[in-house]
């Protein structure tokens, strides 16, 4: 089935074979490999994207259900420059293996867009759906906290 949607501001389309996820379609059909596939059950957040204004796990969205939707992936966040969240994570050395990073970046960027001055507790709560398998949470949270109030 032909699926037409907007990804990072551009009109894109792909053919689905069946019930594959939006994550699969982004990576395999549109070659946007920033969003990562890990748990495939919505536990880890490494596939986080913004779908029609909502932060979701793209592994839990059936690709055909994204027809006509607007999707923002990590590739579309900063435009030609790095997004402030990406810069902050680089500065605090918040990347170890890097597999969770795109999900954290998308989730944190969305949080900072929705909430002007989240407290450290708010940040922890809102990023509860993103898991770092290297357990590098300290640097990730410190990086995001440096951005609070800067918007």
């Amino acid at each position: 089935m032909r699926v037409q949607l907007t990804v990072n501001g551009e009109s894109r389309s792909f053919d689905t074979k069946g019930s594959e996820s939006l994550l699969f379609a982004l990576r395999e059909y549109l070659r946007l490999t920033g969003s990562k596939g890990a748990c495939e059950q919505g536990e880890c957040g490494s596939c986080s994207v913004v779908l029609d204004g909502n932060l979701v796990c793209s592994c839990l969205v059936m690709a055909v259900d994204a027809a006509g939707s607007e999707v923002l992936t990590v590739e579309g966040l900063g435009g030609s420059e790095l997004h402030p969240v990406q810069k902050a994570l680089i500065e605090t050395g918040a990347v170890q293996c890097g597999f969770c990073t795109p999900g954290f970046v998308v989730a944190a960027a969305e949080l900072l867009k929705e909430t002007l001055s989240p407290s450290p507790e708010d940040i922890r709560e809102e990023l509860a759906g993103n898991i770092c398998r290297c357990t590098g949470y300290g640097a990730i949270l410190r990086g995001i906290e440096t951005l609070v109030g800067e918007a």
């Binding site: 019930s19 059950q41 919505g42 839990l60 059936m62 259900d65």
Partner: peptide
């Protein structure tokens, strides 16, 4: 929402 269904789909427990 897909939060239950897609887990089964991803793990090939259901082929709708």
């Amino acid at each position: 929402g897909g939060t239950d269904l897609m887990v089964e789909v991803n793990f090939d427990q259901i082929r709708p």
